[in-house]
Amino acid sequence: MLLLAAVSIGVGKSWIPPTAFFSPADEAQWLVLTQLRLPRTLLAIIVGASLGIAGAVMQGYLRNPLADPGVLGVSTCAALGAVLSLRLGLTVTTPWTLPVLAMTVATTAVMLLMVMVGRGGSAITFILAGVMVSAVAGALTSLVLSLTDDPYAAAEIINWLMGALTDRSFDDVLFAAPFAAAGMALLLTTGRSLDALTLGEETARSLGVRLGRLQLTIAVGIGAAVGACVAAAGVIGFVGLIVPHLLRPLIGEQPSRLLVPTALAGAALVLAADTAVRLSPGAQELKLGVAMALLGGPFFLALLMRLRRRLV
């Protein structure tokens, strides 16, 4: 991952060797490095780690390998919060409203899902409810967009919705980092409870797991981590879905053992994808969110096929 980070800092429309870091002789290179590449790289790490661990926790909690903050509509809800704050023009005067609204709406979404499905609800109900929440949030986002008169503002929102790490500054990093870190820290505490849930809710409760508290921890943790990411980088889907699956064959399926590795691997995946996207030909870069969806969609389908074979 460190190697990837180094490469990510170097790669761009023009290659800058990492050594330029230590010799600030060339002013332009130095500026590009510190003001563009470095924040972008840091953000890729934060976003990837958050989304990866969020996916691992959701899959563990639901005991279903198809869960992911994107699939369940959490990212869409965070985006709705962010778009609302953009539309209302709050971001101009008070920039912190965007991440805060994004996180609040995302947390509410997870809680809403948990309440709707209720205790003992099956993973299928949860996923169906998530798809519905996702659809409603998407529709509301479109509504907000269509009510935006200013075409430039609308274009900006759409651009941001597609998910990208382009032109981020250290301010974005500073906004996202503490919330993402706090969210991830909360999620890391759920490991043992998730392990116990391997045997179902009844057994988990008989082993002393407080399901209510676990739900709250997960809702707040995912809301903060995913909300902060979406606020900083727009909607980047499928990271949380893909990463745990890539790791399970390597380190086993025990939920607690997946948490830290998924954070690391998530960061590596987003770093790699973002670096690749920068190298894509054409004047305009391919959007990272678009690239991940193009990659993730087929992956999701392949996963479904394999699961079907295993279950039949």
């Binding site: 005991r63 392990d195 116990a196 391997t198 045997l199 082993l207 797991v209």
Partner: peptide
């Protein structure tokens, strides 16, 4: 009771110590 993930028998039994 179901076993939801493909984990080792020993890890499952260890859950009893939780």
């Amino acid at each position: 009771a179901e076993i939801h993930w493909n984990v080792f028998v020993r890890s499952l039994v260890e859950l009893g110590r939780a």
